[in-house]
Design a protein around this nucleic acid. Structure first.
Lengths: 222, 222
DNA sequence: CCTGTTCCTTAAAGGATGCTCAGGCAAAGC
DNA sequence: GCTTTGCCTGAGCATCCTTTAAGGAACAGG
């Protein structure tokens, strides 16, 4: 899962990046509105976190531009305490949620999870067939048996399960899981798909990941 | 276990901090409502102790704001003798318990323990497999054999056992056990995990603490 | 049937992370 | 003051994770 944080205070930016990466998110930082907007339009994020008070283009303007471009990504904005007007304007401008500074990191995480499961009514627990993936505890179950995965393996599986029934192209996978934005001729994806298939097979969840030749991969329920 | 004390009288604040630290809690102090609220929202505490009469934002307001932010931390408030109204309003505002000044330190401790075991129906005794940890007497048993731990070792084990079956990230451990809030590249955690594992091994409780590479540690029942 | 492309599989190098040990420092107890 | 005890740091080492590279298999088009 890939998140863009637009925040000018280096301390908070760092804090967010470190904390989120510990939760296995791929995090990009932008330090002003112009850069942030460019990045949000150019790349495909799963979530935006935008500070309302940033130099250059304001947070609210970033939000409007993003929506105007038809991008329906969840957007959480950070606002100063008691800035009631901000909140109203913000939600009006198309933000999905807001959080007041200072905030508890746990609360932010909770709100992020709410947004990310917008298209996934089952709650935090992601499932696909017998497979069950928990992004909070980073546990993966096949039926009742636990499957041990490394961080990268987990990120990849999580992304595929979150987008189950949809084709995940190679370039999207490399962007969302590896946070690589330029074209590269690496074969990491193949290798990790192979790792995953092996471990899933061994646990009795074989043949869940299907190859779409020339495009990418897909996980289907059945 | 990490506690925030919001108390403006330096004498009482000092008294609380020293006494609680003697009991192996990690204690932060705030001397007015505004600071206290910020700290409570920004960090993740296991318990709040709030004086009702503090400069700036009142204790009751702190309580309300904390609850409004969706933080479900136990909150004990300190009130003057016979302030019956305070008590009613306080519990209404979301406080978990109260204690009248002046109070016996032992009583406060007892109430703290009640709150901390809220999510732990078995009472004070924390367990994980053959392991049993008593936060009151600071005794650790493996089966029937006692394990001698230093204060830091104990705090770490207590935190892990309290959160058994959950992944404890490095940053949460360093916050709750060491009370360090900024990122640091120390390896204290590794060292103390090592100490614990050695002692637990020797007592016959080996392999209880599992490493989650890149994230932290976890204690599991089995 | 041949050929080029795409994907799978494996092995091995390099890097990152965690473990272990020795030692210094500070506080507490004698 | 001296010893003991507990706390923390830093470096070397071991282990695991990640990535690259290369050969072979499967596939699609001519």
């Amino acid at each position: 899962m890939r998140i863009l944080v637009i925040e000018d205070e280096p301390g908070i930016a760092r804090f967010l990046k470190d904390g989120l990466e510990e939760e296995y998110f791929a995090v990009d930082l932008a330090f002003d509105g112009k850069n942030g907007l460019d990045m949000a339009l150019l790349n495909e994020y799963d979530l935006l976190i935008v500070d309302w008070m940033i130099p250059g283009i304001s947070g609210i303007e970033v939000c409007r531009q993003v929506r105007k471009s038809g991008i329906d990504v969840p957007l959480i904005f950070l606002t100063a305490k008691d800035a009631l007007d901000d909140i109203v304007f913000g939600l009006d401008a198309g933000a999905s949620d807001y959080i007041r500074k200072p905030f508890a990191f746990e609360e932010l995480l909770a709100r992020i999870r709410v947004q990310l499961r917008r298209n996934n009514p089952a709650g935090d627990q992601l499932t696909a067939g017998r497979l069950s993936v928990n992004p909070v505890t980073h546990q993966v179950l096949c039926g009742t048996g636990e499957i041990m995965l490394t961080p990268k393996e987990f990120s990849l599986l999580e992304y595929l399960v979150r987008n189950k029934e949809k084709v995940c192209t190679r370039s999207r996978i490399i962007e969302h899981v590896w946070d690589i934005h330029f074209d590269s001729d690496t074969s990491v994806i193949d290798v990790y798909i192979n790792f995953l298939r092996k471990k899933l097979d061994q646990a009795g969840c074989g043949n869940i990941i299907q190859t779409i030749r020339g495009v990418g991969y897909i996980i289907r329920e059945s």
